[in-house]
């Protein structure tokens, strides 16, 4: 099939960017979206032009590197799919596509489709862990965990940290990401001890990074390639209010 692409080009973080148009021919329906861009880049390099820069690595939807919006949808329109696993059979011959970096105040553009998502690392750094040193652990089966709790914790832990939730949110909020990590740990007995400190620290770090707040648009859940539930946000809000109201010591 043939496609008309409008790709966001931006030299660096300070230069203003613009869309550049490309026509790509011979696109196979079995290609992944990134393979289609690979083919474009090979042609650009051969012509002595700079290839389109985009983050990508595992190409199997788990590393969370790839991040771009296609026709306004973070990772493209197919539900529960990263752009690296989006295949060209999802598009039609002759279609015109608009390809942009994830747009959010918290994710400044570095070049073309590459953005700086280090704010997510700083949110984790502020408290997204259990403070256990290597070697301190007791036998793994000494604390039984209800299967249902472990399963819900896993639902939250499935987050790949790609940032689609932020790009999809009209407020540029990072609440789905932050709540996924908070809930993953808070739901497990190992994470209970530091629950209050963790919740307060991560929520406040998130605010300090310039992300907005949730006003229940549900766009994040819809864009999330791992279909993480927005319910985690209400659980996070509840935990945050309780932690603030009752102090870090908890009740």
């Amino acid at each position: 099939m043939k496609l008309k692409l409008n790709v966001w080009r931006q030299k660096d973080s300070v230069t203003e960017g613009a869309f550049e148009n490309f026509n790509v021919n011979d696109v196979s329906e079995h290609m992944s979206f990134l393979e289609m861009l690979d083919v474009l880049n090979e042609d650009l390099i051969t012509d002595g032009k700079e290839p389109v820069a985009f983050d990508h690595d595992c190409r199997e939807g788990i590393c969370g590197s790839c991040a771009m919006s296609v026709n306004g949808y973070p990772h493209g329109h197919r539900k529960g799919t990263t752009v690296c696993q989006l295949h060209m059979r999802e598009f039609n011959d002759g279609e015109e596509l608009w390809i942009e970096p994830f747009r959010a105040k918290g994710f400044p553009v570095i070049k073309d489709l590459v953005t700086d998502r280090s704010a997510f690392d700083r949110i984790i750094e502020s408290g997204g862990y259990v403070s256990v040193r290597t070697g301190q652990a007791q036998d793994a089966n000494s604390i039984p965990i209800r299967k249902e709790n472990a399963d819900v914790a896993m639902d939250a832990a499935a987050c790949i940290g790609c940032g689609a939730c932020v790009a999809a949110c009209p407020n540029g909020a990072a609440m789905l990401f932050t709540s996924a990590k908070i809930n993953h740990l808070n739901l497990l007995p190992q994470g209970q001890v530091e629950k209050n400190e963790r919740t307060i620290a991560m929520v406040e770090q998130m605010q300090n990074e310039g992300f907005g707040s949730c006003t229940n648009h549900y766009e994040c859940e819809s864009a999330c390639p791992k279909s993480i539930s927005i319910n985690f946000i209400s659980d996070m809000n509840k935990a945050y209010i309780k932690s603030k109201a009752f102090g870090k010591a908890g009740i």
């Binding site: 793994a140 299967k147 472990a150």
Partner: peptide, 21 residues
């Protein structure tokens, strides 16, 4: 030791209905 360490970190390994790994 690895399994012990990872469970202590909060790695959500699959569990049986009795709550064990």
């Amino acid at each position: 030791n690895i399994i012990d360490q990872c469970v202590a970190q909060g790695v959500p390994f699959a569990r049986e209905y009795g709550g064990l790994l």
